[in-house]
Amino acid sequence: MAKILVIADIKEGVLKGSTAELLSKAKALSAQTAVVAIGSNIESLIADMAAAGSDTQYIADDKSLELFSAGPYAACVVAAAQQFEADMIWFGFSEAGKAAAPRVAAQLNAACATEIIDVTLEGEQIQVIRPAIAGKVIQRIQVNTQTLVAVVRAGAFEATPGITGTQNMVKLSIPAPDLKAVIKQILSDASGEIDLADADIVVSVGRGARDQAGIDLVRELARDLSAGFGSSRAMVDGGFMAHNKQVGQTGKIVAPTLYMAIGISGAIQHLAGMTGSKTILAVNKDPEAPIFNVADYGIVGDLFEVIPILRQEIKKIRG
């Protein structure tokens, strides 16, 4: 039986849904499952981690692990992987995962694959599927080592309803802090708005909104829908939107039920972050904008005119 170790995705004291998604996939592969949880004050989440489908919980809980630092984070994962004798180590999609996965692979002499969207296991042979070249192609990758470290793309797997596990906590020793790369501070861009990764609906604004007034207009639509409020890079570069709002290859990869692209042209790097969405609506005044090639519904029009009507019509329907 293969053994799959999933890195628990914890943010602001909450276990994120991606953990159950990855564990569900692991169970679907008939694997033995464990999680490794790294942070400060997280022991209380053990029950949640078991409920998400893990049968062992490796815990590194220490004040020194409060702020993300790739070195100690990777050291905890390596320790858990070795104790569990993991065949696969899966990170959910996050900047922490992207930073730590190659380190873990190098230390375990394992193969490494990022942004995977599927994985198969036949006997001992592991294969993964992942997009490359900004999403223009899909690669089937053959893994030649016994162990694979992978970063799973957001939205790749679904949580199995009713999944459960068992509580079996194993404490890891706390690694020494990285004294050569010291994290001093996090300038949080927490805006009180919904995290893009969690949002069922994402409304994103592009250069078509022009300025702060345009952005505020589109933000109202996002508020009405309790949606995540995202952005193209153009509006981040322009200083209007925070970095963590950027959707695309360099930003967040999102796969909500509904993605609304407002005044966004649909550059390949933006598409790479949102074409996994279930339904896409685009509003753009240029009928030739490439965003319409991926949109299920397209409104050709001036967003300054369309958005107020859109808000009104949605209110009518949703009550």
């Binding site: 602001e12 993300f68 900047e95 050569k180 790369a181 501070q185 996090i186 300038l187 963590n244």
Partner: peptide, 14 residues
């Protein structure tokens, strides 16, 4: 500075 999961992280490197 690096873009992390919950904001911009300031890191001093030797």
């Amino acid at each position: 500075s690096r873009l992390g999961d919950s904001g911009t992280e300031i890191v001093e490197i030797t």
